[in-house]
Simulated assay, not measured.
Amino acid sequence: MLYLVPTPIGNLEDITLRAIRVLKEVDIILAEDTRTSRKLLDHYGIETPLWAHHAHNEHTAVNGVMREFLAGKKLALVSDAGTPGISDPGFLLVRECVKQGIRVECLPGATALIPALVISGLPCDRFHFEGFLPHKKGRQTRAQYLASLPQTFALYESPHRLVKALEQLLEFCGPERSACVVRELSKLFEEAHRGTLASLVAFFQQHPEKIKGEIVIVVAGKEEKHEKYEKYEKYEK
């Protein structure tokens, strides 16, 4: 059996009792970065062996993993943070398990997408999740496509590409489109900045010190009217 186990995106308390039990009971834990996962396992007293399973080795490692399943082993897959397979390694292994008739279970748990979407204040009854935009080829084409969607859309972005992403979204969505930039979810300096795309571009150009950590951008759909939002900041004591 393969268990997909979500891990905290920041606060170490954001892990379920079931996840802790599964990580203790399986024979092997496949980890995106064994050093990162070791900190979490040590925190909860989990001594299960760790194997590296990441974007650079998942194609070559899958055969060895499949042999462990055929030997009757139970394995868990974790990413550095959040739910495996969501903009993280996992898809190839799950697909191979499905082909081979190996049971796959995904535990519910942490992800940056849903909290960012909900606290954005934008409609979330329907939404589109983009993941990361391409770094170069196809980036503008995807931004143009997203601008045409009638529903709210969300994407992940790295700190050094945030302003560029907001500028490209502004170009295709227009300066008055409502949006929200959420960073450091569940961590001490969690922040959500709401406004138009034009105001958000101006804010982050003027405050580069705010461009840190894991970032989610949430943008209103083409048919949604802009509402004026005040900046929201949350500091966890």
Rank of each mutant, 00 (worst) to 15 (best):
T7W: 08
N11Y: 04
L23H: 08
D27C: 12
L30F: 11
S37C: 13
S37R: 12
D42I: 10
H43R: 15
H43P: 01
P49I: 07
L50Y: 10
H53L: 13
E58R: 05
E58H: 10
H59T: 06
H59F: 11
A61P: 00
V62Q: 09
N63S: 14
M66D: 06
F69M: 12
K73D: 09
K74E: 15
K74N: 13
I86A: 00
D88G: 04
P89G: 03
P89I: 03
G90M: 05
F91R: 11
C97S: 11
C97Q: 07
V98T: 10
Q100V: 05
G101V: 09
E105K: 08
P108T: 02
P108V: 00
P108F: 01
G109Y: 03
A110G: 07
A110W: 05
P115Y: 04
L117Q: 04
S120F: 04
G121W: 00
C124T: 09
D125H: 08
R126G: 07
H128L: 15
H128C: 15
E130G: 13
E130I: 07
P134I: 03
K137V: 10
G138K: 04
G138I: 00
G138R: 06
R139S: 03
Q140H: 12
S148W: 09
S148P: 07
T152W: 01
E157N: 12
S158H: 09
K164H: 14
A165M: 10
A165C: 15
L166H: 10
L169S: 00
E171G: 01
E171I: 02
F172C: 00
C173Y: 15
S178A: 15
C180Q: 02
S186D: 05
L188Q: 12
L188T: 14
F189R: 04
E190G: 04
G195I: 05
T196L: 08
V201I: 09
F204Y: 15
P208F: 05
P208C: 05
P208T: 09
K210H: 12
G213T: 02
I215C: 07
V216Q: 03
V219E: 13
G221E: 04
K222M: 08
E223W: 07
K228H: 07
E233Y: 09
